[in-house]
Design a protein around this nucleic acid. Structure first.
Length: 270
DNA sequence: AGCCAGGTTGCGG
DNA sequence: CCGCAACATGGC
């Protein structure tokens, strides 16, 4: 399947640290999982070439990469800030991804106080040991019931460290209380955040990652160590800085956050 | 060896 | 409400 894209950069988007389930095969070519389907995606100019097993619908790809959002409008809004203007010029085509809610939730529980490399490794091991086999050595992210009953040995193998109880407890809560987290995305911002923070291992930052990257709350502004440094440089008070940003980008603070985060990690910003 | 990584928790003030 | 130490683990 080929998809013509505009204002989309696959590499920027998949290397931005927002998702952890893709691997690079070569320049502009990645493989991973979307909707429990194995996909190989290569970008050549403005064409996305996609192979998938089993077959994936174009609409699922468009949704995953937010291809139908008004990109021009979002960039226009966040570019009113001079630093963001530079960032959007440098990383044009970077987009917020629309991930699976459950995978995103548990991936970010694992992400806390951790490194991107190790987060990816842990998720890969968990998938291999507990996920459904898809193809070759590719496995999907484990279902929550499986995570809930995972043996401590397997969690040890996945190197979750002290986060193992966060994963187990949160999975338990979902099952025992019969929670459907798809309902959370229908709530208003504050209620959704509050609901997510009731889970073990989900605090201020992780809750907003889940909201931004899988629940369409485009104004969530996850503040990790990098963003915290940025806020310290730009504002007297980081707390007020975050609020100010969330109030000035017309509901798209999360997109600004992704550009800032990318620029900082890439040392384009200092 | 020591510091850092897409932070959260549970404590004391 | 606030600040703060502890927390597993691997990479650099």
């Amino acid at each position: 399947m080929n998809i013509i894209v505009k204002d989309f950069n696959l590499a920027y988007t998949l290397e931005s640290g927002q998702c952890f389930n893709f691997k690079k095969e070569r320049e502009n070519k990645y493989f991973g999982i979307i909707k429990d389907k194995f996909v190989i995606i290569e970008q050549i100019g403005d064409v996305l070439q996609i192979e998938s097993t089993p077959k994936i619908r174009e609409e699922d790809i468009r949704e995953y990469f937010n291809l139908d959002i008004d990109y021009t409008k979002i960039l226009e809004i966040i570019s009113r800030d001079s630093k963001l203007k530079k960032l959007t010029e440098k990383y044009r085509g970077l987009r917020v991804i629309n991930q699976d809610e459950y995978e995103c939730m548990f991936s970010y529980i694992i992400s806390s106080f951790n490194s991107v490399t190790k987060i990816k490794m842990s998720i890969e091991i968990l998938s291999k040991k507990l996920g459904a086999h898809i193809l070759g050595d590719i496995y999907s992210f484990p279902r929550i019931e499986i995570l809930k009953n995972a043996s401590l040995d397997i969690l040890k193998d996945a190197k979750l460290g002290y986060r193992d109880r966060f994963v187990i407890n949160s999975a338990k809560k979902i099952i025992d209380e019969n929670i459907n987290i798809y309902d959370i995305k229908k709530l208003d911002y504050d209620t959704a955040k509050k609901k997510l923070k009731e889970f073990d291992g989900i605090g201020d930052k992780v809750s907003e990652c889940i909201m931004l990257y899988s629940m369409n709350f485009h104004n969530a502004f996850p503040e990790d160590v990098w963003i915290n440094r940025y806020l310290k440089g730009e504002f007297k008070n980081t707390r007020e800085g975050k609020i100010s940003i969330q109030n000035s980008f017309e509901g798209f603070a999360g997109w600004a956050q992704l550009f800032i985060y990318t620029g900082l990690r890439d040392k384009f910003l200092d």
